[in-house]
Design a protein around this nucleic acid. Structure first.
Lengths: 254, 254
DNA sequence: CTTGCGGTTGACGTAGCGTCAACAAGTACC
DNA sequence: GGTACTTGTTGACGCTACGTCAACCGCAAG
């Protein structure tokens, strides 16, 4: 019932751009994407837009404000994708991303805190009640203040799920070592060395030691009561672990 | 005091990649960026990494997990930028971005809600107590259900600051029209047409009408008591606005 | 005739790699 | 000695949504 009006009002690209508060580059981009073609092309190649194009542009900009991708917008406008469904999916993505940034910001804050207060940092957030605030003096004496602070900072950068993963990996490594010891395997046995490699990878999450430092860590395990307790509660003799670490350091860390 | 050990343990790219859980492509990328160069290059061009490179990589990955850009990481590692400062700035950015996504998700939710419940939507969130829930029947009768729903959805997609801006713009337009009327200007006067153009832009935020629809909107302003009240409280005679809109529609919307 | 305006079409750059090519060197096997 | 396989190498394109030149063109005013 509409009258055909081929000669309806047309606007050049600059007026459309100004009216809709986008750049003319954007309009050309949408044309190139097939998202919004002009109503007519002048003989000089000029783009002319009519009222229907303006309305289509409004829909595009509405969805763009909501953060949808131009590809999705195109599919919605062509009816290939349900608008409500697309919006619901998008909302889920927004919420997930927002939570990710939130936890990330918290992790960054914790890292800042640990870097700032290197002196007085307590490590209550170390796994399984393992108290390294007092261990810290030992560690600093062995490896130097900077190394210990850097390791603590790396550790602080882990989020809670990663901490759980680290604790689980520690438990698994200890179980493996306990099995090796029970089987009477020597420190240079492949199975022991495999377990030690896991241990080295595990340590590397917060600190990548050199050969001597790695052996030094094993010695600390032997000498320090809290470390002894940590390993012995899982049935691992710290001396056994130290022997394995020494072999590993000689072979793999020079 | 360190012993020089040029022939210390070196690992090929694949072992470094596996150990640090990154791809070899990533390591090559970091090399290309000057972020992490291998310790040695084999005669066949192979990259060989030593323990110091592994440690540097750990720092890179720590900062990357926190979301810092590789350029910033490079500056931090070179001491050109303070790590704490960079982290604080980054945290601020994360929080801002997180809040942005949060409000965006809320806006999307509101849009979904309005699209879903087109029938029963109330428009309490329209500016200045302007009640359009009852006006809606009028609007649907004039322009059809789909058009009204789409306009309401676009309106729902605005956030509160945009609503304030729209309310402010409406007040400004009304003041302008009141001044024109007081000056005795005719409907086709440039000043009146300029004000009407602002009005058209303002309407276009939620709906881009055609010529007849735009005039119809002006008629609704005249006929509907609530719209009359909205304009008359700002000293604008709806008939005057309708006359301006009619001229504008003829001239600009065909 | 020059200048200026308003438009046009490329083409590059952006962040951080993934994902093919196409090619080389060393090793195992027949 | 030839062949296949592995592990590496260096390009180069692709991805979002455009911003930002650059080079050019047609038309109107001075």
């Amino acid at each position: 019932m509409e009258q055909p009006r081929p000669e309806a009002v047309l606007w050049p690209i600059s007026e459309v751009a100004e009216h809709s508060r986008v750049s003319s580059r954007t309009l050309r981009h949408y044309d190139a994407l097939g998202l919004l073609a002009p109503a007519h092309l002048g003989p000089n190649g000029y783009r002319w837009y009519g009222a229907p194009e303006l309305r289509r542009l409004q829909r595009i900009l509405l969805l763009r404000r909501l953060g949808l991708g131009l590809d999705v917008i195109g599919e919605v406008l062509q009816g290939q994708r349900d608008e409500l469904e697309a919006l619901r999916v998008h909302r889920g993505w927004l919420l997930a991303e927002q939570r990710r940034l939130e936890t990330l910001a918290a992790t960054v804050a914790r890292t800042i805190h640990h870097l700032e207060q290197g002196e007085t940092m307590n490590a209550q957030d170390l796994f399984e009640g393992f108290d390294n605030h007092s261990y810290e003096e030992e560690a600093i004496a062995r490896w130097g203040r900077d190394t210990v602070r850097a390791a603590a900072a790396r550790h602080a950068a882990l989020d809670s799920s990663q901490r759980q993963a680290m604790a689980a990996e520690a438990a698994a490594i200890n179980a493996e070592l306990a099995r090796c010891a029970a089987a009477g395997l020597k420190a240079d046995d492949d199975a022991v060395q495999a377990a030690v490699e896991r241990h080295w990878n595990w340590v590397s999450f917060s600190w990548t030691p050199e050969a001597t430092s790695y052996v030094g860590l094993g010695q600390l395990y032997v000498e320090d009561d809290r470390f002894r307790a940590f390993y012995e509660k899982d049935g691992v003799d710290p001396e056994y672990l130290l022997a394995g670490m020494t072999v590993y350091a000689e072979r793999r860390l020079n």
